[in-house]
Design a protein around this nucleic acid. Structure first.
Lengths: 143, 143
DNA sequence: TATTGTTATACTCTATAACTATA
DNA sequence: TATAGTTATAGAGTATAACAATA
């Protein structure tokens, strides 16, 4: 059944992500945070908490770790002295650029043998599934 | 790009799984263990460690938790006094039966609107991607 | 009074290493 | 000597609650 394949794929992707990141001294959770910074630029921890859907306390820990490894830096907020701005260090920015390239090459290797039509069909279906997921889980409680 | 959709889907599925399971007092890791028991019947902890690809120490913790919540039980191995056989309690077996049904109904809701041809194409592509993933990650190190 | 980030505390998953009981 | 499972220890991710500084 398709769902089983999908779940299996989920597990595989997750494990592979974890292992690949460990080789760079990163974790999945920390990489999500880096990715958010890469896309949005400097953020307050509050904004990161909202973006990643975790508690502010959790962000404190993730930024602690990333700052210790030299990927991020805490800077004072220019107008609000309660806030800190989390920014990518040059190293952190480099790592994220490499990661963007890595995703591209992984995609090429994974999907490279598919015809454009197949690719389109797959992406369309994935989008469809993604959209339905929301509705489905809103009513999953009666299970 | 298709990979982005796939990763997004991975994250969504993962979060949803986590939340759905929390409503039943379970976690993803513990459910993997229950699923293995559901499919293979009573297992030694060693066998579970191999099946889930985690350390024996980790299995000790998971079985501790599941036994405390009444999903599993430890029984003496009939011939090897070093081993314990982990079994599903009646409650645990019931939960897993419900989960098998739940997966079916979730699949129906997610994929129900797709034509058989679309479903087949999606499943085929997922299998293809799954297979390629192995090769791809064996050579991902040059990144 | 409300918000930002922290400290305090706790639980789960995970790993390695040392140890006990058995094989 | 090797194997099954445990205790000991540690680190990461996550949560809630109480608190300090600031708005």
């Amino acid at each position: 059944m398709a769902l089983d394949r999908l779940l299996e794929l989920t597990v595989l992707l997750n494990d592979d992500m974890t292992n690949a990141l460990r080789r760079e001294g990163l974790t999945v959770a920390r990489t999500h945070l880096l990715w958010a910074l890469h896309q949005r630029g400097p953020c307050t921890q509050r904004a990161l908490a909202d973006e990643l859907n975790v508690t502010p306390r959790n962000i404190t820990g993730l930024v602690d770790g990333l700052t210790e490894t030299g990927h991020t830096r805490r800077e004072p907020h220019p107008t609000d002295r309660r806030s800190t701005l989390v920014t990518l260090t040059p190293t952190g920015a480099l790592v994220m650029k490499g990661m963007a390239r890595g995703r591209l090459s992984l995609a090429t290797r994974l999907f490279g043998e598919l015809s454009p039509a197949e690719l389109e069909a797959f992406a369309g279906t994935a989008a469809h599934v993604s959209a339905r997921l929301r509705d489905a889980l809103a009513t999953e409680d009666e299970r």
